[in-house]
Simulated scan of single mutants.
Amino acid sequence: MTPFPWPEFAASLPWTALAVAVVLAVTFVVAVRQHRHSVMDVAWGPGFVAVAVVSWFLSAGQGDDTRRLLLVLLTAAWGLRLGVHIGWRARDGHEDPRYKDLLKPAPGSRNAYALRRVYLPQGVVMYFVSLTLQVGMFAAGAVGWVAVLGILLWVTGFVFETVGDWQLARFKKDPARRGTVLNTGLWRYTRHPNYFGDAAVWTGLFLIAADSWPGILTVLSPALMVWTLTAKTGKPLAEKAMSGRPGYQEYLESTSGFLPLPPRRRRTGAS
């Protein structure tokens, strides 16, 4: 078995950290000029793409070429789609209410407070989660069945996230459905097909990396992403925002909170 190139991997870490810092710095400048820090959501996916591209370039001649190509292409497909989708959704130029609430307690400069409460934490999470990609790029073992499972899981997650976002966008465009609850399509089986898709995508990327030592050691990276989606800034905030809508309590009782499952009972109401 080819040993893992620890010195070369260690030498790449400052460069991938720089990639994250550059993405955050550019995003912060744009946010200040537009007076809305929710632009960070647009940069979230592309930030991982930047790390993947830098790591792919620096791992040339070290890791398995098939795994390297899979990781950079799958990350790019996920990250760029997500960035375009969120950018299109936020094209009205208004600050997201979640960020208004988050930055409301700013004791002085709102921008300085945003640096501490938004950009620094998200930069740390981005870098830690991306360690799966970074380690996987340098892993030399050939792609095997675990990686194939990872690809299948990635495809599943990408479909759920893409279709779920499309269904939600169509729902919001219909004036007759304003103020109601989307409970059809993928949203019939999980209250958060987009967040489930994100979690599946990153678990799939982890399996691709974990197919060769020492990728398995990065298990905490996708675990952090899943925890963030299910218990921190994803699912809880979305459900808090929806809690006052008519029929939402019935939707909570009948629809799986995360994993896609058959509805627990027939529902009536808005679709």
Rank of each mutant, 00 (worst) to 15 (best):
P7Q: 09
A10N: 12
A11T: 08
L24D: 02
A31N: 07
R36F: 12
G47Y: 01
V53N: 04
V54F: 01
S55K: 01
W56F: 15
G63N: 00
L69R: 15
V72F: 09
L73E: 06
G83L: 07
G87R: 00
W88S: 14
R91D: 06
G93T: 12
D96Y: 06
K100P: 05
L102D: 03
A106F: 07
N111Y: 11
Y119D: 00
F128Q: 05
F128G: 12
L133D: 12
Q134A: 11
F138K: 06
A140P: 12
G157P: 04
F160L: 11
T162P: 09
G164H: 10
D165G: 04
L168R: 07
D174Y: 05
R178E: 13
T184S: 14
T184D: 13
F196Y: 13
A200Q: 11
T203R: 10
T203A: 15
G204A: 01
F206E: 11
A209C: 02
P214M: 00
G215K: 00
P222A: 02
P222K: 00
M225P: 13
W227Y: 15
L229C: 02
A238P: 05
K240C: 09
A241Q: 14
A241I: 07
A241W: 05
M242A: 15
Y251V: 00
L252D: 08
F258A: 09
L259S: 11
L261N: 08
P262H: 02
P263R: 01
R264P: 04
S271I: 10
